[in-house]
């Protein structure tokens, strides 16, 4: 071998060049053979023409090389004015504003849900707009009730209330009964009745209503409108003295200002004291009581002899539906004034 190699150097340049060329041709043919094998394999395996489509669609996706357009032939600025249609409200919104809009429109997040709730509430209160106005007036000025035109709304809500009273399971009702603490002849609900009107004309109230009202609300009578304040017992607009004088005027001289927390603490409210307060009510003013009141007061009149203050009993809902029969179960009572009061009524 070594001998052969040595003889290479003895070859002339042309022969060496021919040898190099042969090697080169060999290499090129090798590469071509490799490519042929590769293409043949691709053809037989079926993936050679995969990137091919028919000429028409090739023409569709031809790369466009013109100034001012992208490779798809579209004008670049077209994307800037893209708009999306909100699936919720069907408005079309600029794409850049779409995400914030969706957040608001679909009511995600705390704030926007509040906005949505407010919108729902305002749409519900469309017909009650005047009462809303009243609330605002309430906050802003001292003239917290403005008279005659409110009476319509008041009686309307009263009628509504009486209809809704037929449902004994209504939580509002059960609350009001509990609150009255056994005083079953009063079936009206002061919370509901006065929720939409800030002032009450006390002449229209029955004595029981009056009493309930005065144990739960401020009740001071306005000089302007002759109506009663319906705020809490701690209402800052009126003083304790004003409240006391109103109670003296309406309930008699012995009436005292009830404890403000008596309105919230229902269970601890003293039954006996409530009855005593009841007994001091002047009953002559009861001629103009409302129909539902007259029915209930009739029931109480029939049972006047047996009517007694009952001991603390937490569930009053069944009692109210049972009517007078349940009242007979009450133990003989401690209030000596009661019989006389009812005889006076009879």
């Amino acid at each position: 071998m070594r001998m052969e190699d040595m003889s290479l150097s003895g070859l002339d340049n042309s022969k060496l060049e021919a040898l190099a060329h042969d090697i080169y041709t060999d290499l090129v043919e090798d590469t071509c053979l490799g490519l042929s094998f590769e293409v043949h394999r691709a053809v037989k395996c079926g993936y050679f023409l995969l990137d091919e489509t028919d000429p028409e669609s090739m023409k569709d996706f031809e790369i466009i090389d013109q100034p001012g357009v992208d490779i798809f032939g579209q004008v670049y600025n077209q994307w800037k004015s893209k708009e999306c249609v909100c699936p919720n409200c069907n408005r079309s919104i600029a794409a850049s504003r779409f995400a914030p809009h969706l957040e608001k429109c679909l009511g995600m997040g705390r704030n926007s849900s509040r906005i949505a709730n407010r919108r729902i509430a305002s749409s519900n209160n469309m017909n009650k707009s005047e009462s809303d106005q009243e609330d605002n007036d309430d906050v802003n000025d001292n003239d917290w009730s403005y008279g005659a035109e409110k009476k319509g709304a008041f009686s309307q809500s009263g009628a509504k209330k009486r209809k809704s009273e037929k449902n004994p399971n209504s939580p509002r009702r059960s609350k009001s009964i509990k609150h009255k603490n056994g005083d079953l002849s009063v079936t009206t609900d002061p919370f509901k009745q006065y929720s939409s009107s800030s002032g009450i004309s006390y002449e229209n109230l029955g004595p029981e209503e009056l009493h309930t009202l005065l144990t739960t609300q401020c009740g001071v009578i306005s000089e302007h409108t002759k109506k009663m304040c319906t705020r809490s017992l701690r209402c800052p607009q009126h003083t304790d003295d004003q409240r006391r004088s109103v109670r003296v005027y309406l309930l008699g001289s012995s009436a005292s200002l009830p404890e403000p927390d008596g309105s919230t603490d229902n269970d601890s409210f003293d039954v006996v004291e409530g009855q005593a307060l009841m007994g001091r009510l002047p009953w002559d003013g009861s001629s103009d009581i409302s129909p539902s009141d007259s029915a209930s007061s009739k029931a109480s009149t029939n049972n006047s002899d047996t009517r007694k203050p009952k001991k603390k009993k937490p569930s009053h809902i069944s009692m109210s539906s049972a009517g007078g029969a349940s009242k007979k179960k009450k133990p003989k009572g401690p209030a000596p004034l009661t019989p006389g009061m009812y005889s006076e009524l009879n």
Partner: peptide, 28 residues
């Protein structure tokens, strides 16, 4: 060039010999 050859002969009938004989002179 292979594509042309294959389209001409038909996908099923292409052999390695065809390809080599077509490709090698052109490749060179």
């Amino acid at each position: 060039h292979c594509k042309d050859v294959i389209n001409e002969k038909g996908l099923e009938h292409v052999t390695v010999d065809d390809l080599v004989s077509e490709i090698t002179p052109k490749g060179r």
